[in-house]
C-alpha cells in the first residue's frame, strides 16, 4: 500500500474523479432514459428518417453517446492521474 493514499493529493484526486463520474452519468442517463424513453413524447416534432428523434436515441443515439462518454472519461482520467501524480 503506497503512502500517498491518505494525502491531500489523493483526496483531491478522488473528489475530481467523483465529479467527473457524476457529470458523465448525468449525460448517460439523459441520452438513454431521458431522450430515448421519458422525454420521447416531447421530441415527436423532430423528424429523423421517417420517425422521431426519441426513436433514434433509443436505437442508436444512446449507444453513440455511451461510446463517446467512455473514451472521454478514460482520456480525462489519464490527465487527472498525471495531474495528481498517481499514475502507474
Amino acid at each position: 500500500m503506497s503512502n500517498e493514499n491518505g494525502t491531500e493529493a489523493g483526496k483531491a484526486y478522488w473528489k475530481a474523479n467523483l465529479a467527473l463520474i457524476r457529470n458523465c452519468l448525468i449525460v448517460w442517463a439523459l441520452s438513454s432514459f431521458g431522450m430515448g424513453i421519458l422525454f420521447r413524447p416531447l421530441l415527436t416534432g423532430i423528424e429523423v428518417g421517417g420517425t422521431d428523434l426519441g426513436f433514434w436515441f433509443a436505437q442508436q443515439g444512446s449507444i453513440l453517446v455511451f461510446l463517446g462518454l467512455i473514451f472521454f472519461y478514460a482520456w480525462r482520467m489519464n490527465k487527472l492521474d498525471h495531474q495528481f501524480g498517481v499514475e502507474e
Partner: peptide, 15 residues
C-alpha cells in the same frame, strides 16, 4: 435491449 446491453459498459468503465 439495445440501450441496456451497451449502457452497462459506461458503468463498468467508471464504477
Amino acid at each position: 435491449f439495445l440501450m441496456g446491453w451497451t449502457g452497462g459498459y459506461v458503468l463498468l468503465a467508471m464504477l
